[in-house]
Design a binder for these strands. Structure first.
Lengths: 221, 221
DNA sequence: CGAATGGTTCGGTTAGGATCGAACCATGAG
DNA sequence: CTCATGGTTCGATCCTAACCGAACCATTCG
């Protein structure tokens, strides 16, 4: 009788309006927090938490904990394919709501909690390692201190804290690591203070000016 | 808040075990009666009747009344694609309950609505792309037409239809794409007409003969 | 150390829907 | 016509799961 792959299990996960709203919101590959998703689904965070746990358990979503946030994202391409296949049914109407010009910008550079992420953040971090600003254990080398001084940054002046100075943080859009920790924050602060870039209100986008990007690239080279 | 396409509606239709069992049974494109489907779903005919009404109402199935029978079949290719997309999830993990000798055959070649799926289908599709039978936008190139002519297929002779000529369909067992659309159907029809393969009754398996497989491979090379 | 914020757990309520028995309608066979 | 069979409708039961309030845990900030 009832055999074969258990299609109903996954379908049931998508079958709830709140869950499907959250899934659609994640279709562009972004990673969103539980409270953001609760808002998008029109439910309280308790309910969202329960839904998200089910989706993760069902391997439809993956989580990544960062600080006190938990970032949820689709578990892979096959999930997006499934959602696309479902959208075919309601396709005749329903103009898609997303993918304004903001998305590419978000991939290029954005704030991740308090430090730089996206393409620019990843490039920074990889350059710091390749050029030995950082040692393998993520401590700052002498050359690192020199380079930081070039943009007016002296780690000795940072406010004390028990938060680690350097930490690697997984970048969702690039799937590589970028620099987090107090130093990540300090560098972003300098980038903003130098007017190399500015934050766009109501979003996580960091917008580099043309001169700012040139300055940043020159600094890395 | 909650906008966008109402994917939860269709997902809910598939989310019931009895309904999904019936849908899977229909994946080979056959049309079955309500009582047959009731048996396959492991439910009484009253319940099945209710389920089937919902599926028809939701445009997942179509009915055809003949005498005192009512034949149900999938509403279209997009339904089969959806079911395949769902099967992707239960394929890798979840030690399947049944691994008789039929499964390998099913993975090797099977019918997906009306076109070739499984290992053979995926190989065909990848070859078509690598060897430029198809352009990136899935239109048929001149070389493609030549190769199709080799097995006696002329796309100009296909019956007109508004169904797309070429479509990619995610393959459940392979997690890659295979060829659907009118051309996918036409190729499978030729493969069967050439006696390269035949359908096994009561299943979705497409069984290639040794010579048939050789012919198929030679055609691809 | 609080205070603030992001998230989870628990308990109780509620609504939807899957299920089947029984009765009913429609078609076809004899 | 009568009977058997395919299918639907109705009503009642029962179970699941979505939901939120409230309390709780964890992390960061001052």
């Amino acid at each position: 009788m009832r055999e074969g792959p258990d299609i109903a299990r996954v379908a049931a996960l998508v079958a709830d309006p709140a869950r499907s709203a959250m899934l659609i919101a994640l279709m562009d590959g972004r990673a969103l927090t539980a409270t953001e998703l609760a808002g998008l689904g029109g439910i309280t965070k308790q309910t969202a938490s329960s839904h998200l746990a089910k989706l993760v358990d069902g391997e439809v979503l993956t989580v990544e904990a960062q600080g006190r946030h938990r970032y949820f994202r689709l578990a892979g391409l096959h999930v997006a394919s499934l959602l696309e296949a479902l959208m075919v049914f309601s396709s005749d109407a329903a103009p898609p709501l997303r993918t304004g010009p903001r998305d590419p910008a978000l991939r290029k550079a954005r704030i991740c909690y308090d430090h730089l992420a996206g393409e620019m953040g990843v490039r920074l971090f990889e350059r710091m390692q390749a050029d030995h600003w950082l040692a393998d254990d993520l401590t700052v080398t002498e050359r690192g201190n020199d380079k930081l001084a070039e943009i007016g940054l002296n780690l000795g002046n940072l406010p004390p804290s028990n938060r680690p100075l350097c930490r690697a943080c997984l970048d969702w859009s690039q799937r590589r690591q970028h620099l987090a920790g107090r130093m990540g924050k300090a560098i972003l602060d300098r980038v903003l203070a130098l007017s190399w870039a500015r934050r766009l209100p109501e979003s996580r986008i960091i917008c580099f000016s043309p001169e700012g990007e040139r300055g940043f690239n020159r600094w890395l080279s």
